[in-house]
Design a protein around this nucleic acid. Structure first.
Lengths: 205, 205
DNA sequence: CGAGTGATTGACTGCGTTCAACCGACGTGG
DNA sequence: CCACGTCGGTTGAACGCAGTCAATCACTCG
């Protein structure tokens, strides 16, 4: 199952990546692609599978920065700004990526104006989404946070009735800064209110 | 007093902005530059003063997305992605900006590769900071949130002893998603622990 | 069938919020 | 020069909601 926020257009054409020396790399489910504090050495783009970026704080609690699907790239901002990764990346399922050295990637960006523009827009979109997400996370009760999370999944999706939400309660909790139990109890209330639907433990929105 | 996170390099050279038809605009303290949900019509760059971007939620609570000082631009992501502003911008003090129509701005970005690169890096930096900020805001007790906020102000600042924090308790509360009272109580505890200093109601970090 | 994973429920607790005052510094006008 | 208004800072008391802990349930897969 592809992640709900999959953006179908490829960030960089695969032929270009291979032409510039990109190589594929396979990761098993659960394998870590890079750790927090690592310096970025590669540009990563997903050929198949799904990747999650998240942060673990001092008390051992996770916070998801986002999930990425086929065609999407991840972990680029630190490449552009020359800082270490602020979060770790992990394959959620068996995943194949194509990767390219940091320097080569930056050369490609300078070489193709259209690609530079695409990344400018991508970064702008990420800023935008993180701003919206922050608003919905901070200062808001559980119901609003969860609604915000669910709505962001709907991007570009046709509003044809309800769709299965491909996330576990735990994943929703990690993305919204709530505890699993709170997510469960809030979702039940929301189901009673008709805002979501729960059919044998599956969540529809 | 310039905001603590002032980035001294100008985003776009002022001569270029004027050459392309940029005009200056004055805002009085408290004046709103644009509202949430407005479609972006201008690129804004600060000549003097200080601007705050923030969001007001349903319950009337504010959440600061950031503050911007001399030489900085703000509100660009929606221009690049063609969406309405997710937050409003307001002059915190009397402020002068230079502004330029959206279309002209985009033309400049395409015209000058160096400027395009600068904005790519700027957007990447913003993503980075918002990611770090989100981690520190969610799932964390007041002390950690406030520490995160204070540390982000230190960027590039020489660590020469303590500096006056140019923010009111209310502003810190709005930026961290806490209540004023909680900020006050937590700061007092932190002062006792030596993490900050409070001299006649002024905060030093 | 047994192990493992995710979902669920109940009881209790604690922390940050809420509400309501008051304080201290500063500026302005009569 | 002082009275007054305003704004930011401070304190105390009570409350309520989400977190915590612990146990159980439902489903899947080897």
């Amino acid at each position: 199952m592809p992640p709900a926020n999959t953006n179908l257009k490829m960030m960089i054409d695969i032929d270009i990546l291979f032409a510039w020396g990109g190589v594929t790399k396979c990761y098993q489910k659960g394998e870590v692609i890079f750790y927090e504090e690592d310096m970025p050495r590669f540009y990563h783009q997903i050929l198949s599978g799904q990747v999650r970026m998240y942060h673990i704080n001092e008390e051992g609690r996770e916070f998801s920065q986002g999930t990425f699907g086929i065609g999407q790239s991840f972990g680029e901002p630190p490449i552009f700004v020359g800082k270490p990764y602020p979060a770790m990346a992990q394959a959620m399922v068996d995943t194949v990526t194509i990767r390219l050295g940091r320097e080569t990637f930056l050369k490609i960006v300078e070489e193709y104006p259209a690609i530079k523009t695409a990344f400018l827009q991508l970064m702008a979109e990420r800023v935008y989404h993180k701003a919206v997400k922050a608003s919905s996370l901070v200062n808001n009760p559980p119901e609003v946070r969860i609604l915000g999370f669910l709505q962001q999944l709907k991007h570009g999706k046709p509003p044809d009735g309800r769709a299965l939400v491909p996330y576990t309660r735990q994943e929703i909790a990690n993305a919204t800064g709530l505890r699993v139990e709170t997510v469960i109890r809030t979702l039940r209330k929301m189901a009673e209110a008709g805002q979501v639907e729960i059919r044998n433990r599956k969540l529809y929105f």
